[in-house]
Design a protein around this nucleic acid. Structure first.
Lengths: 360, 360
DNA sequence: TTTTTTACCGCAATCGATTGCATAAATTTT
DNA sequence: AAAATTTATGCAATCGATTGCGGTAAAAAA
C-alpha cells in the first residue's frame, strides 16, 4: 500500500503465497471457522472479534478464494452467457447490461460465442457446466434445433434464461419481444405510406424470431386487403450485407417487382440502401425500406433508415434479473416466466414517401 | 441421451447430484486416483483401464468439476478481461478475438467493464483476483493514473497483458499500435490534400494513446512546415458525439478557423460530419475530416469518412496468445514483451479535396 | 446457590480433484 | 532362483472455505 503508485517495475521475487483464513486464524489465535463467520458478519460472532478479524484481513491483504467457497457450496460466482457473435451491436448491448446487472451483485460473467453454430453452442454449454456456473443466459444459435444440451442445467436446478432467440418447444424462462407485432407494425407502416408491393427478407423459419416476423408481415398485408405473394418473401440464410443485395436483385427481376421491403435485420437493409444509391433507385420515392433492430448505423445513413427498436439492453437487464431471482431456489416448472418487452417502430426517411423530404 | 430432443418440459424431479470420480471409482472398484489419472491419459495407467473408465464416464455423464481441480492446483480455467465499455465496436471486436483464441484452448473468459472509471477498474481487478483468474487482459480506464491494483497479479505471477490503452509507467506485457505514427500519417494526408489550418480533437493527455496521437499530429505539421497552433487543439473529456460538435463549434468561432480536423475517434468525426451537413459546410470541399478506429459507420456515412484502421481483432488475438504463452511459467521481468501492430490509413471521401468526387 | 439461558466459538467433516510416495504384481536380469 | 526393474495402482494429504453439531463460560433466572 505504501509505494502504491509504484513507478518501478513490480517486484516479482517475493513469491508470496496467498493468505488464507487459516493464517488469519493462527495469528489471532482463533479458529478458521470464526474467521470465516466473522468475514460474513455471522450473528454468532462478537463485534470486537469481527472488527479485529476484518482489520487483520485488510492488513494482510487477504483475498478470499472463490474457488474454495464455490467448491464447498457447489456453485460458482459466475454466470454464463452464450451469444452468437459478441461484436454485433445487438449482442454487445445485451451483454453490457447483463454484466452491469450481475456484477452489481458481486457475480461475474463468462461469455462464450456460438458463431450461430449448433456444435459450438453444445460445446459452450458443456464448458459452462464444467465451470459450475450458477446460471445461464442464452441467445440461440441459428442452427440449433435440438435443445438437449441444456437438459443438464435443468436437472441440476441451474436457472437457464433464453433471451431474444428462444426455443418454442422448451418450457423455460424467456425474455423476448413480440416479433409478430413489431413486424405487423413495420409492414402496416409501409402500407400506410402508400407502398403496395411489399417484399420481405426473412430468416430461417425454424427460429421463431423470423417465423413470427414473417407471420406479422403476412397478417398486416391481409388486414390491409393485400394478398400476400410468396414470391415476395425471400428467406435468407446468413442475413449478411451481401445476401441482402443478392436478394433484392432477385426480387427486382420479378415480373411484378416490389416497391418496398421489410428486412428482418438492419444489415441487409443498409446494404440495400447503399446498393440502391449506386444504381439510382431513389429511397423513399421509388422504394421504401424498413429494417430491424435500430443499429446505430441506421440513423447515420442517408436516407436514415426506418427500423424497429429492439431493446437489447432491456432484454439483458431482465434476463439477468430473472436469473438472479432464481438463484439457489427450489424452483419448479411453474416458476418459469416469459417476459415480453415492447419494441418501437422508429420512422425515418427511408419510408417517408408522403413526407416533405423527397430528394432521396 | 435417448429422448434427446425432448419436446416435453425438462424433468425437474430427479435432483440427481453430480457424478464424481469417486462414484466412477466405486463402480469400477478402483481408486479415485486411478480415475483421475485415466481421464488425463496418465502414462502409468493401462490402456484397458483407461478405456473402461472413459467409457463409464461418458455413460454416467460425468462432468469434471473445474472448481475442485482449480482449487487443488490453485488456478482457474478462466482469464479475465477488463474493458471500458463492451458495446463499443472497438472493444467488442477485441473481446471477440480474445474469446475465440482462449476458448480454443479450453479456457473461459470473464468480462468486466470499467466504464472508464478508476474505481470500477480497481473493483474489477479485485473481483478477478478473488476468482483466481489465471491471466488478465486490460484496456485501461480513462481515469486511471495509479496502477497499484495490478500489483497483486504480478506478485502472484499471474500474467497481465495491457491492450491498446497501456500504462507507460509500468513495465509489463503490452499490445498496442503506434499511435504517433498513425496520427502522423493522418495529419500528413490532410496536408497533402491541401488543407492548411488543421485542428485536432484530442483526448486527455495522461492516457498515452491520446498523447501520442497529439504528438504525431504536431510533428506532422512541423515536418511540413506548418507551425502548430495550440488554439487548434481541443482536448476532449468524454469524446462523445455531443462534445465533438461542441468542440468544432468553438474551433469555427476562432479568428483563424481551421479548414480541416483530425479527430482522435470516429464518434466525434461522424457527429461533426452530420453537423456540417446540417449547417451547410461541405466536406471535403470546405473542410476535411479524419477520424480514428475505422468504426463500421465510417464507411456507411456520406461522405465516407477517412479514418485509421485500428486492428482491435488482432490486438485481442495477440494479447490472448501472449497470455497463454505465459501461463504457469516462471517468468521474470525480462520476459515482458511489447507487441506493436500496424495501423492503416483508410482514405475515403471526407478528405478527398483533390479528387473527382466533389459534390460533398 | 443452583439451574437455565444466552452468547460465542471450536472441532472436524465436507466439497471433488490432484499428486507424492508407497506398494504389489509382473517382468527382466543376473 | 534370487534380485532388480518395470508397470500399474492405491493411500492419504492437500487445496481453502464452509457449516452442523456441540461445548464452555458468562449472564440471567430461580
Amino acid at each position: 500500500m505504501e509505494d502504491a503508485n509504484s513507478n518501478k517495475a513490480p517486484d516479482l521475487k517475493k513469491k508470496k503465497t496467498h493468505v488464507t483464513i487459516h493464517d488469519l486464524a493462527a495469528e489471532l489465535k482463533v479458529s478458521p471457522s470464526t474467521v470465516s463467520r466473522a468475514l460474513h458478519g455471522h450473528p454468532g460472532i462478537s463485534q470486537e472479534r469481527i472488527k479485529a478479524i476484518t482489520r487483520l484481513a485488510k492488513k494482510r491483504n487477504y483475498v478470499p478464494n472463490e474457488l474454495a467457497a464455490g467448491l464447498r457450496q457447489s456453485r460458482s460466482n459466475c454466470i454464463g452467457v452464450i451469444t452468437t457473435w459478441i461484436d454485433r451491436n445487438f449482442h454487445s448491448s445485451l451483454i453490457r447490461s447483463v454484466e452491469e446487472e450481475v456484477s452489481s451483485k458481486g457475480m461475474n460473467v463468462i461469455i462464450l460465442q456460438s458463431h450461430d453454430r449448433y456444435k459450438d453452442e453444445v460445446e459452450n454449454a458443456k464448458a459452462l457446466l464444467n465451470s459450475r456456473v450458477s446460471g445461464l443466459i442464452v441467445s440461440l444459435a441459428m442452427e440449433t434445433r435440438d435443445y438437449s444440451h441444456f437438459k443438464p442445467f435443468f436437472e441440476r436446478q441451474i436457472p437457464v434464461i433464453f433471451a431474444d432467440r428462444v426455443p418454442r418447444e422448451i418450457h423455460a424462462h424467456k425474455v423476448l419481444v413480440d416479433n409478430f407485432k413489431a413486424a405487423y407494425q413495420a409492414t402496416s407502416h409501409l402500407i400506410e405510406q402508400g407502398y403496395r408491393h411489399i417484399a420481405h427478407l426473412s430468416g430461417q423459419q425454424h427460429r421463431d424470431n423470423y417465423l413470427d416476423r414473417q407471420e406479422g408481415y403476412v397478417q398486416a398485408l391481409k388486414d390491409h386487403g393485400i394478398r400476400p405473394d410468396k414470391r415476395l418473401i425471400y428467406e435468407c440464410e446468413t442475413k449478411s450485407a451481401e445476401e441482402g443485395v443478392l436478394a433484392v436483385q432477385q426480387l427486382l427481376s420479378l415480373k411484378q417487382p416490389p416497391d418496398a421491403l421489410f428486412s428482418t435485420n438492419d444489415t441487409m437493409a443498409v446494404s440495400i440502401l447503399q446498393y440502391f444509391k449506386k444504381i439510382g433507385i431513389r429511397v423513399p420515392r421509388d422504394f421504401g425500406i424498413v429494417g430491424f433492430n435500430n443499429d446505430p448505423i441506421t440513423s447515420i445513413i442517408d436516407p436514415a433508415l426506418t427500423t424497429t427498436y429492439n431493446p437489447a439492453y432491456e432484454i439483458g437487464k431482465h434476463a439477468a434479473k430473472l436469473l438472479l431471482e432464481h438463484q439457489r431456489q427450489n424452483w419448479t416448472e411453474k416458476d418459469f416466466k416469459t417476459i415480453r418487452l415492447e419494441t418501437e417502430l422508429i420512422v425515418r426517411e427511408s419510408t417517408d414517401k408522403k413526407g416533405l423530404r423527397n430528394e432521396g
